[in-house]
Nucleic acid binder design. Structure first.
Lengths: 207, 207
DNA sequence: TACATTACGTACCGTACCGTACGATACGGA
DNA sequence: TCCGTATCGTACGGTACGGTACGTAATGTA
Protein backbone atom coordinates (compact mmCIF):
# COMPACT_ATOMS: atom_id res chain seq x y z
CA UNK A 1 0.00 0.00 0.00
CA UNK A 2 2.95 2.26 0.65
CA UNK A 3 4.67 1.44 -2.61
CA UNK A 4 1.32 1.15 -4.21
CA UNK A 5 1.21 4.91 -4.02
CA UNK A 6 4.52 4.99 -5.84
CA UNK A 7 3.45 2.89 -8.70
CA UNK A 8 1.57 5.48 -10.71
CA UNK A 9 0.75 8.72 -8.98
CA UNK A 10 4.20 9.07 -7.50
CA UNK A 11 5.87 8.18 -10.75
CA UNK A 12 3.86 10.77 -12.60
CA UNK A 13 4.66 13.30 -9.95
CA UNK A 14 8.34 12.54 -10.31
CA UNK A 15 8.20 12.88 -14.08
CA UNK A 16 6.49 16.24 -13.72
CA UNK A 17 9.01 17.48 -11.23
CA UNK A 18 11.97 16.31 -13.30
CA UNK A 19 10.61 17.95 -16.43
CA UNK A 20 9.81 21.16 -14.58
CA UNK A 21 13.27 21.26 -13.08
CA UNK A 22 14.93 20.87 -16.44
CA UNK A 23 12.79 23.46 -18.18
CA UNK A 24 12.85 25.99 -15.37
CA UNK A 25 16.64 25.76 -15.18
CA UNK A 26 16.97 26.11 -18.93
CA UNK A 27 14.43 28.84 -19.59
CA UNK A 28 13.45 30.48 -16.35
CA UNK A 29 10.06 30.81 -14.72
CA UNK A 30 8.05 32.94 -17.10
CA UNK A 31 9.42 31.45 -20.29
CA UNK A 32 8.44 27.95 -19.19
CA UNK A 33 4.79 27.20 -19.81
CA UNK A 34 2.81 24.59 -17.98
CA UNK A 35 2.02 23.04 -21.30
CA UNK A 36 5.70 22.67 -22.13
CA UNK A 37 6.19 20.98 -18.78
CA UNK A 38 3.27 18.69 -19.51
CA UNK A 39 4.80 17.65 -22.84
CA UNK A 40 8.29 17.20 -21.40
CA UNK A 41 6.87 15.08 -18.61
CA UNK A 42 5.07 12.85 -21.08
CA UNK A 43 1.74 13.66 -19.51
CA UNK A 44 -1.20 13.83 -21.83
CA UNK A 45 -3.51 16.10 -19.92
CA UNK A 46 -3.07 19.30 -18.02
CA UNK A 47 -5.62 18.07 -15.57
CA UNK A 48 -3.03 15.56 -14.42
CA UNK A 49 -0.53 18.34 -13.81
CA UNK A 50 -2.94 20.27 -11.68
CA UNK A 51 -3.86 17.16 -9.76
CA UNK A 52 -0.28 17.04 -8.46
CA UNK A 53 0.50 20.72 -8.14
CA UNK A 54 -2.15 23.32 -7.49
CA UNK A 55 -0.41 26.06 -9.47
CA UNK A 56 2.65 26.95 -11.44
CA UNK A 57 4.00 28.95 -8.53
CA UNK A 58 3.72 26.04 -6.11
CA UNK A 59 5.42 23.76 -8.60
CA UNK A 60 8.25 26.25 -9.00
CA UNK A 61 8.73 26.64 -5.28
CA UNK A 62 8.78 22.89 -4.80
CA UNK A 63 11.34 22.37 -7.56
CA UNK A 64 13.63 25.20 -6.51
CA UNK A 65 13.45 24.26 -2.87
CA UNK A 66 14.52 20.72 -3.70
CA UNK A 67 17.31 22.00 -5.93
CA UNK A 68 18.63 24.22 -3.18
CA UNK A 69 18.47 21.53 -0.55
CA UNK A 70 20.11 18.98 -2.80
CA UNK A 71 23.28 21.05 -3.06
CA UNK A 72 25.87 18.86 -1.40
CA UNK A 73 26.80 20.31 1.93
CA UNK A 74 30.42 20.60 2.97
CA UNK A 75 29.71 18.66 6.11
CA UNK A 76 31.71 15.66 4.97
CA UNK A 77 34.67 17.90 4.41
CA UNK A 78 34.51 19.32 7.87
CA UNK A 79 34.83 15.89 9.36
CA UNK A 80 37.76 15.09 7.07
CA UNK A 81 39.79 18.04 8.29
CA UNK A 82 39.23 18.14 12.00
CA UNK A 83 41.76 20.46 13.60
CA UNK A 84 44.68 21.94 11.68
CA UNK A 85 47.58 21.70 14.10
CA UNK A 86 50.21 23.13 11.79
CA UNK A 87 50.50 25.25 8.70
CA UNK A 88 50.68 22.41 6.15
CA UNK A 89 47.51 20.90 7.57
CA UNK A 90 45.72 24.24 7.32
CA UNK A 91 47.02 24.71 3.80
CA UNK A 92 45.77 21.28 2.80
CA UNK A 93 42.40 21.88 4.38
CA UNK A 94 41.85 25.28 2.78
CA UNK A 95 43.10 24.15 -0.62
CA UNK A 96 40.86 21.11 -0.65
CA UNK A 97 37.93 23.16 0.54
CA UNK A 98 38.52 25.82 -2.11
CA UNK A 99 38.68 23.23 -4.86
CA UNK A 100 35.54 21.65 -3.53
CA UNK A 101 33.72 24.96 -3.57
CA UNK A 102 34.90 25.63 -7.09
CA UNK A 103 33.73 22.27 -8.31
CA UNK A 104 30.40 22.90 -6.62
CA UNK A 105 30.14 26.14 -8.53
CA UNK A 106 30.93 24.33 -11.74
CA UNK A 107 28.16 21.81 -11.45
CA UNK A 108 25.92 22.24 -14.46
CA UNK A 109 22.91 23.23 -12.39
CA UNK A 110 24.65 25.73 -10.19
CA UNK A 111 24.77 28.87 -12.30
CA UNK A 112 21.32 28.39 -13.83
CA UNK A 113 19.86 27.88 -10.37
CA UNK A 114 21.56 30.96 -9.03
CA UNK A 115 20.49 32.91 -12.08
CA UNK A 116 16.86 32.00 -11.62
CA UNK A 117 16.83 32.68 -7.90
CA UNK A 118 18.32 36.11 -8.54
CA UNK A 119 15.86 36.78 -11.34
CA UNK A 120 12.81 35.79 -9.32
CA UNK A 121 13.51 37.43 -5.97
CA UNK A 122 10.52 39.69 -6.50
CA UNK A 123 8.01 36.94 -7.14
CA UNK A 124 9.56 34.36 -4.78
CA UNK A 125 11.31 36.31 -2.03
CA UNK A 126 11.87 33.33 0.22
CA UNK A 127 14.00 31.29 -2.20
CA UNK A 128 17.04 33.54 -2.44
CA UNK A 129 17.71 33.82 1.28
CA UNK A 130 17.13 30.09 1.63
CA UNK A 131 19.84 29.45 -0.94
CA UNK A 132 22.23 31.91 0.60
CA UNK A 133 21.82 30.40 4.01
CA UNK A 134 22.07 26.84 2.70
CA UNK A 135 25.09 27.18 0.45
CA UNK A 136 27.43 30.15 0.67
CA UNK A 137 26.78 31.02 4.28
CA UNK A 138 27.68 27.49 5.22
CA UNK A 139 30.88 27.80 3.23
CA UNK A 140 31.76 30.97 5.09
CA UNK A 141 31.08 29.30 8.40
CA UNK A 142 33.33 26.36 7.57
CA UNK A 143 36.23 28.54 6.46
CA UNK A 144 35.86 30.65 9.57
CA UNK A 145 35.74 27.58 11.75
CA UNK A 146 38.92 26.19 10.20
CA UNK A 147 40.72 29.46 10.81
CA UNK A 148 39.57 29.70 14.40
CA UNK A 149 40.64 26.14 15.05
CA UNK A 150 44.06 26.89 13.58
CA UNK A 151 44.44 29.93 15.79
CA UNK A 152 43.50 27.86 18.82
CA UNK A 153 46.49 25.68 18.00
CA UNK A 154 48.71 28.72 17.52
CA UNK A 155 49.10 28.08 13.83
CA UNK A 156 48.05 31.53 12.65
CA UNK A 157 47.64 35.04 13.99
CA UNK A 158 44.47 36.70 15.14
CA UNK A 159 42.46 38.36 12.41
CA UNK A 160 38.94 39.14 11.34
CA UNK A 161 38.31 35.62 10.21
CA UNK A 162 34.87 36.39 8.90
CA UNK A 163 36.39 38.92 6.55
CA UNK A 164 39.17 36.54 5.57
CA UNK A 165 36.54 33.96 4.74
CA UNK A 166 34.65 36.53 2.65
CA UNK A 167 37.83 37.34 0.75
CA UNK A 168 38.54 33.69 0.02
CA UNK A 169 35.02 32.76 -0.97
CA UNK A 170 34.60 36.09 -2.76
CA UNK A 171 37.72 35.50 -4.80
CA UNK A 172 36.09 32.36 -6.14
CA UNK A 173 32.77 34.13 -6.43
CA UNK A 174 34.14 36.62 -8.94
CA UNK A 175 34.39 33.79 -11.43
CA UNK A 176 30.85 32.68 -10.72
CA UNK A 177 29.56 36.20 -11.26
CA UNK A 178 31.47 36.35 -14.50
CA UNK A 179 29.72 33.13 -15.46
CA UNK A 180 26.35 34.54 -14.42
CA UNK A 181 26.83 37.48 -16.74
CA UNK A 182 28.02 35.37 -19.65
CA UNK A 183 25.44 33.65 -21.77
CA UNK A 184 26.85 30.29 -22.76
CA UNK A 185 29.16 27.97 -20.92
CA UNK A 186 32.09 30.31 -21.10
CA UNK A 187 35.04 28.36 -19.85
CA UNK A 188 35.34 29.61 -16.40
CA UNK A 189 38.48 27.83 -15.27
CA UNK A 190 40.58 29.59 -12.68
CA UNK A 191 41.86 26.26 -11.47
CA UNK A 192 45.43 27.48 -11.21
CA UNK A 193 44.27 30.59 -9.39
CA UNK A 194 42.81 28.62 -6.53
CA UNK A 195 46.13 27.65 -5.01
CA UNK A 196 47.38 31.21 -5.36
CA UNK A 197 44.26 32.46 -3.63
CA UNK A 198 44.80 30.12 -0.69
CA UNK A 199 48.45 31.16 -0.44
CA UNK A 200 47.43 34.80 -0.31
CA UNK A 201 44.96 34.19 2.48
CA UNK A 202 47.55 32.18 4.39
CA UNK A 203 50.08 34.99 4.11
CA UNK A 204 47.48 37.35 5.46
CA UNK A 205 47.05 35.34 8.64
CA UNK A 206 50.49 33.85 9.18
CA UNK A 207 52.20 34.50 12.46
CA UNK B 1 16.85 73.09 -36.29
CA UNK B 2 19.17 71.12 -34.04
CA UNK B 3 17.37 72.06 -30.87
CA UNK B 4 14.16 72.13 -32.79
CA UNK B 5 14.50 68.37 -32.91
CA UNK B 6 14.87 68.37 -29.17
CA UNK B 7 11.79 70.32 -28.50
CA UNK B 8 9.25 67.58 -28.98
CA UNK B 9 10.46 64.36 -30.51
CA UNK B 10 13.57 64.24 -28.34
CA UNK B 11 11.63 65.15 -25.23
CA UNK B 12 9.15 62.40 -25.88
CA UNK B 13 11.96 59.98 -26.53
CA UNK B 14 13.55 60.96 -23.24
CA UNK B 15 10.31 60.49 -21.34
CA UNK B 16 9.91 57.07 -22.87
CA UNK B 17 13.43 56.06 -22.02
CA UNK B 18 13.18 57.35 -18.47
CA UNK B 19 9.91 55.51 -17.88
CA UNK B 20 11.25 52.35 -19.44
CA UNK B 21 14.36 52.51 -17.31
CA UNK B 22 12.38 52.87 -14.13
CA UNK B 23 9.95 50.10 -14.93
CA UNK B 24 12.52 47.68 -16.28
CA UNK B 25 14.67 48.15 -13.19
CA UNK B 26 11.70 47.71 -10.91
CA UNK B 27 9.97 44.80 -12.60
CA UNK B 28 12.29 43.23 -15.11
CA UNK B 29 11.89 42.72 -18.81
CA UNK B 30 8.96 40.39 -19.16
CA UNK B 31 6.89 41.85 -16.36
CA UNK B 32 7.06 45.31 -17.90
CA UNK B 33 4.55 45.80 -20.67
CA UNK B 34 4.87 48.33 -23.44
CA UNK B 35 1.54 49.71 -22.38
CA UNK B 36 2.79 50.28 -18.84
CA UNK B 37 5.77 52.13 -20.28
CA UNK B 38 3.45 54.20 -22.41
CA UNK B 39 1.37 55.21 -19.39
CA UNK B 40 4.43 55.92 -17.22
CA UNK B 41 5.92 58.06 -19.96
CA UNK B 42 2.73 60.08 -20.23
CA UNK B 43 2.36 59.14 -23.85
CA UNK B 44 -1.16 58.73 -25.10
CA UNK B 45 -0.65 56.36 -27.99
CA UNK B 46 1.35 53.23 -28.49
CA UNK B 47 1.99 54.37 -32.02
CA UNK B 48 4.21 57.08 -30.55
CA UNK B 49 6.23 54.50 -28.67
CA UNK B 50 6.84 52.52 -31.79
CA UNK B 51 7.80 55.64 -33.69
CA UNK B 52 10.80 56.01 -31.35
CA UNK B 53 11.71 52.39 -30.76
CA UNK B 54 11.02 49.66 -33.25
CA UNK B 55 10.44 46.97 -30.66
CA UNK B 56 10.46 46.21 -26.97
CA UNK B 57 13.77 44.40 -27.33
CA UNK B 58 15.47 47.37 -28.94
CA UNK B 59 14.14 49.67 -26.27
CA UNK B 60 15.46 47.37 -23.57
CA UNK B 61 18.89 47.14 -25.14
CA UNK B 62 19.08 50.91 -25.48
CA UNK B 63 18.07 51.48 -21.86
CA UNK B 64 20.36 48.84 -20.39
CA UNK B 65 23.29 49.91 -22.52
CA UNK B 66 22.94 53.47 -21.29
CA UNK B 67 22.61 52.30 -17.71
CA UNK B 68 25.78 50.26 -17.98
CA UNK B 69 27.76 53.03 -19.60
CA UNK B 70 26.55 55.61 -17.11
CA UNK B 71 28.15 53.74 -14.23
CA UNK B 72 30.79 56.14 -13.01
CA UNK B 73 34.18 54.90 -13.96
CA UNK B 74 37.02 54.84 -11.48
CA UNK B 75 39.19 56.79 -13.81
CA UNK B 76 39.13 59.90 -11.65
CA UNK B 77 40.32 57.82 -8.76
CA UNK B 78 43.27 56.51 -10.66
CA UNK B 79 44.51 60.01 -11.31
CA UNK B 80 44.02 60.92 -7.65
CA UNK B 81 46.33 58.15 -6.44
CA UNK B 82 49.19 58.15 -8.88
CA UNK B 83 52.02 56.08 -7.47
CA UNK B 84 52.01 54.72 -3.94
CA UNK B 85 55.58 55.25 -2.77
CA UNK B 86 55.11 53.89 0.73
CA UNK B 87 52.78 51.68 2.70
CA UNK B 88 50.55 54.45 4.11
CA UNK B 89 49.98 55.80 0.62
CA UNK B 90 49.03 52.35 -0.66
CA UNK B 91 46.77 51.83 2.33
CA UNK B 92 45.04 55.15 1.69
CA UNK B 93 44.61 54.38 -1.99
CA UNK B 94 43.19 50.90 -1.48
CA UNK B 95 40.90 51.99 1.34
CA UNK B 96 39.49 54.87 -0.64
CA UNK B 97 39.07 52.70 -3.68
CA UNK B 98 37.32 49.98 -1.68
CA UNK B 99 34.91 52.48 -0.17
CA UNK B 100 34.27 53.91 -3.59
CA UNK B 101 33.49 50.48 -5.00
CA UNK B 102 31.19 49.75 -2.10
CA UNK B 103 29.31 53.01 -2.56
CA UNK B 104 29.02 52.22 -6.25
CA UNK B 105 27.47 48.89 -5.35
CA UNK B 106 25.07 50.65 -3.01
CA UNK B 107 23.69 52.99 -5.61
CA UNK B 108 19.98 52.32 -5.88
CA UNK B 109 20.19 51.21 -9.48
CA UNK B 110 23.13 48.89 -9.11
CA UNK B 111 21.62 45.70 -7.76
CA UNK B 112 18.46 45.92 -9.88
CA UNK B 113 20.57 46.46 -12.98
CA UNK B 114 22.80 43.53 -12.15
CA UNK B 115 19.78 41.40 -11.36
CA UNK B 116 18.19 42.11 -14.72
CA UNK B 117 21.37 41.56 -16.69
CA UNK B 118 21.82 38.20 -14.98
CA UNK B 119 18.20 37.27 -15.54
CA UNK B 120 18.22 38.14 -19.23
CA UNK B 121 21.52 36.68 -20.36
CA UNK B 122 19.64 34.21 -22.52
CA UNK B 123 17.58 36.78 -24.39
CA UNK B 124 20.25 39.50 -24.45
CA UNK B 125 23.62 37.78 -24.36
CA UNK B 126 25.63 40.88 -25.19
CA UNK B 127 24.59 42.95 -22.18
CA UNK B 128 26.15 40.90 -19.39
CA UNK B 129 29.67 40.79 -20.80
CA UNK B 130 29.42 44.49 -21.61
CA UNK B 131 28.64 45.21 -17.98
CA UNK B 132 31.36 42.96 -16.68
CA UNK B 133 33.94 44.57 -18.92
CA UNK B 134 32.73 48.07 -18.13
CA UNK B 135 32.45 47.85 -14.36
CA UNK B 136 34.06 45.04 -12.38
CA UNK B 137 36.84 44.26 -14.84
CA UNK B 138 37.89 47.89 -14.70
CA UNK B 139 37.91 47.71 -10.92
CA UNK B 140 40.15 44.67 -11.05
CA UNK B 141 42.51 46.41 -13.44
CA UNK B 142 42.80 49.46 -11.20
CA UNK B 143 43.53 47.42 -8.08
CA UNK B 144 46.09 45.39 -9.98
CA UNK B 145 47.70 48.53 -11.34
CA UNK B 146 47.98 50.05 -7.88
CA UNK B 147 49.65 46.93 -6.56
CA UNK B 148 52.10 46.75 -9.44
CA UNK B 149 53.00 50.38 -9.00
CA UNK B 150 53.61 49.81 -5.28
CA UNK B 151 55.85 46.89 -6.05
CA UNK B 152 57.81 48.98 -8.52
CA UNK B 153 58.57 51.31 -5.62
CA UNK B 154 59.55 48.41 -3.38
CA UNK B 155 56.56 48.95 -1.13
CA UNK B 156 55.23 45.41 -1.26
CA UNK B 157 56.35 41.92 -2.19
CA UNK B 158 55.73 40.10 -5.41
CA UNK B 159 52.48 38.21 -5.61
CA UNK B 160 49.74 37.18 -8.00
CA UNK B 161 48.22 40.62 -8.06
CA UNK B 162 45.36 39.60 -10.26
CA UNK B 163 44.33 37.08 -7.64
CA UNK B 164 44.81 39.59 -4.84
CA UNK B 165 42.56 41.97 -6.72
CA UNK B 166 39.95 39.22 -7.11
CA UNK B 167 40.08 38.53 -3.39
CA UNK B 168 39.61 42.21 -2.54
CA UNK B 169 36.85 42.86 -5.03
CA UNK B 170 35.32 39.47 -4.31
CA UNK B 171 35.20 40.18 -0.60
CA UNK B 172 33.00 43.16 -1.37
CA UNK B 173 31.11 41.17 -3.96
CA UNK B 174 29.87 38.69 -1.39
CA UNK B 175 27.71 41.44 0.05
CA UNK B 176 26.38 42.34 -3.37
CA UNK B 177 25.45 38.73 -4.04
CA UNK B 178 23.73 38.58 -0.69
CA UNK B 179 21.79 41.65 -1.78
CA UNK B 180 20.98 40.07 -5.13
CA UNK B 181 19.45 37.09 -3.40
CA UNK B 182 17.48 39.17 -0.91
CA UNK B 183 14.20 40.61 -2.03
CA UNK B 184 13.92 44.02 -0.46
CA UNK B 185 16.55 46.56 0.40
CA UNK B 186 18.09 44.45 3.09
CA UNK B 187 20.57 46.63 4.86
CA UNK B 188 23.75 45.50 3.33
CA UNK B 189 26.26 47.50 5.33
CA UNK B 190 29.68 45.97 5.81
CA UNK B 191 31.19 49.43 6.14
CA UNK B 192 33.36 48.43 9.06
CA UNK B 193 34.47 45.32 7.22
CA UNK B 194 36.00 47.30 4.39
CA UNK B 195 38.99 48.52 6.36
CA UNK B 196 39.57 45.05 7.73
CA UNK B 197 39.46 43.67 4.21
CA UNK B 198 42.10 46.12 3.03
CA UNK B 199 44.31 45.32 6.01
CA UNK B 200 44.11 41.64 5.21
CA UNK B 201 45.13 42.20 1.62
CA UNK B 202 47.98 44.43 2.72
CA UNK B 203 49.26 41.77 5.11
CA UNK B 204 49.17 39.30 2.26
CA UNK B 205 51.52 41.39 0.14
CA UNK B 206 53.72 43.10 2.72
CA UNK B 207 57.46 42.68 2.48
C1' DT C 1 0.07 80.53 -44.71
C1' DA C 2 1.45 75.89 -46.39
C1' DC C 3 3.66 71.77 -45.33
C1' DA C 4 5.81 67.92 -42.84
C1' DT C 5 6.54 65.84 -38.70
C1' DT C 6 4.76 64.34 -34.41
C1' DA C 7 1.39 62.84 -31.42
C1' DC C 8 -3.39 61.37 -30.43
C1' DG C 9 -7.34 57.74 -29.74
C1' DT C 10 -9.10 53.92 -30.49
C1' DA C 11 -9.78 49.76 -32.27
C1' DC C 12 -8.00 45.57 -33.71
C1' DC C 13 -5.17 41.04 -34.86
C1' DG C 14 -2.95 37.09 -33.56
C1' DT C 15 -1.00 34.67 -30.10
C1' DA C 16 0.19 32.69 -25.79
C1' DC C 17 -0.79 31.33 -21.37
C1' DC C 18 -3.02 29.73 -16.76
C1' DG C 19 -6.39 27.27 -15.08
C1' DT C 20 -10.99 24.68 -15.36
C1' DA C 21 -14.53 21.40 -17.03
C1' DC C 22 -16.12 16.99 -18.21
C1' DG C 23 -17.03 12.71 -20.10
C1' DA C 24 -14.36 8.58 -21.28
C1' DT C 25 -10.81 5.17 -20.22
C1' DA C 26 -7.16 2.53 -18.06
C1' DC C 27 -5.28 0.86 -13.81
C1' DG C 28 -4.53 -1.08 -9.23
C1' DG C 29 -6.01 -2.83 -4.78
C1' DA C 30 -9.59 -5.53 -1.88
C1' DT D 1 -14.52 -9.26 -10.00
C1' DC D 2 -15.57 -4.54 -8.43
C1' DC D 3 -14.64 0.16 -7.06
C1' DG D 4 -12.08 4.25 -6.52
C1' DT D 5 -8.47 6.76 -8.34
C1' DA D 6 -5.34 8.40 -11.87
C1' DT D 7 -5.11 9.61 -16.45
C1' DC D 8 -6.74 10.82 -20.89
C1' DG D 9 -8.45 14.19 -24.74
C1' DT D 10 -10.26 17.92 -25.84
C1' DA D 11 -12.30 22.06 -25.47
C1' DC D 12 -12.99 26.43 -23.40
C1' DG D 13 -12.87 30.90 -20.50
C1' DG D 14 -10.57 34.78 -19.41
C1' DT D 15 -6.81 37.59 -19.73
C1' DA D 16 -2.67 39.85 -21.12
C1' DC D 17 0.57 41.25 -24.40
C1' DG D 18 3.28 42.87 -28.69
C1' DG D 19 2.55 45.13 -32.54
C1' DT D 20 -0.35 47.35 -36.44
C1' DA D 21 -3.79 50.37 -38.66
C1' DC D 22 -5.84 54.60 -39.58
C1' DG D 23 -8.10 58.83 -39.46
C1' DT D 24 -7.50 63.18 -36.76
C1' DA D 25 -5.37 66.97 -34.28
C1' DA D 26 -1.53 69.64 -32.70
C1' DT D 27 3.06 71.58 -33.44
C1' DG D 28 7.08 73.56 -35.42
C1' DT D 29 9.40 75.26 -39.86
C1' DA D 30 9.96 77.60 -44.35
Amino acid sequence: MEDGRDSRAQQTRERIRAAARRLFLQQGYQATSMDAIRVAAGVASKETLYRHYPSKEKLFIDVMGHLTMERPGFSAMVAAFPEPRDMPALRRALTTLAHEILSLMRQPDYLPLLRILIAETARFPELGPLFFATVPQRGLAIIGGLLRAARDHNVIADAEYEVVARALLGGLLTYAVQGLLAAGDETFTPLDHVDALVEIMLRAVEL
